[in-house]
Design a protein around this nucleic acid. Structure first.
Lengths: 178, 178
DNA sequence: CCATTTCCGTACATATGTGTATGGTCGGTC
DNA sequence: GACCGACCATACACATATGTACGGAAATGG
């Protein structure tokens, strides 16, 4: 049995709390309640609350990097398929929820904001490259890529009253763009 | 002198705190410090913290409605100019900062989320109407309007590492869309 | 000029959060 | 099966937050 907890169990639980109840719920008491232990356990694994936050951001930073690597591996695919793959990933609720929580957290944490910004820049570069491959001029590609990436960020934030686009609408949109 | 405070002074100060220090700074102590008074003054004007939040959201809701009204009054203008006016409003830092704070607040407050969603829907309808006037079919107009509004939301959230678009790039983008 | 309402300061009660000290318990090891 | 270290519970100190009670100053009407 896993009656004893490890450090990754704590970062797992912290990410759970982040995407379920938001950044305001990332406290020691709430996290201990979520994991079914008391505060004594937390202070054995971590020095303080800052150490936990650092571990969580480090964890999400690594996860995001691997996701970007998988996107980079799509370079073999035709550019339209790359754009489609990146766009459809936004519709996946599991990966979108944690990204949504991290972007909310980035509002109050400089380090998290840096990681999020780095990821955004990488996505922007990939989208711009795909548009250039599709025959767009560099100026047009830059402007259009900005529009697409900003739209993805806006959709990831999620609290819009707008209807969620369907897969068919995503395909129609890509047809309009390219 | 205005040595005594009114209710609107408190909502003004609360909106200041929201856009300067974020939603986490919206406390009674911090707000009293910002206004240079003590807690006794607060509890004279408001029953509790919930009453203040309600007043602030009501206030922002009214402000947003008047902004939308001013957009609706642009109906006399050609649709391209309407789109341009709405887009350029995003580049204004004063109005963008408070909107950014409100959207962050909406993550933890159901009522704020409702107001934000309502405003998003109104903007979406206006953009869609402008695109229809420009000769787009209803399907294309809906998809493109969603793209534009989501991009505006993403830009309003602001913590992207992407470069801020300039006025010239906005014009170029609108030229590509229409 | 005085009284009443309005507005604000002060002191206190309470709840909740982080962090510390200390002892107890479970699992592996010889 | 006794021991030792990893892991956790408990109790406490401390800071900060909301909310209440009450007294005082400042403005206003007569």
């Amino acid at each position: 049995m896993t009656s004893r907890l490890s450090a990754t169990d704590w970062t797992d639980g912290a990410l759970d709390l982040l995407r379920i109840e938001g950044v305001a719920a990332l406290g020691i008491n709430r996290l201990c309640e979520h994991l079914g232990v008391t505060r004594g356990s937390f202070y054995w694994h971590f020095a303080d609350l800052g150490a936990l936050k650092e571990a969580v951001t480090e964890r999400w930073c690594a996860d995001t990097r691997t996701a970007l690597e998988s996107f980079a591996s799509l370079d073999r695919l035709p550019p339209v398929e790359r754009l489609r793959a990146m766009t459809l990933r936004l519709l996946d609720e599991d990966s979108a929820s944690v990204e949504r929580a991290l972007r909310a957290w980035a509002r109050t944490d400089e380090r998290v904001a840096g990681v999020v910004a780095e990821a955004d820049l990488a996505v922007f570069g990939s989208v711009q490259g795909a548009l250039v491959e599709l025959g767009r001029g560099p100026e047009e590609a830059r402007v259009l890529a900005g529009l697409l990436v900003y739209a993805g960020i806006g959709f990831a934030h999620g609290e819009a009253g707008l209807p969620r686009p369907t897969v068919a609408e995503v395909d129609r949109l890509l047809g309009l763009i390219v």
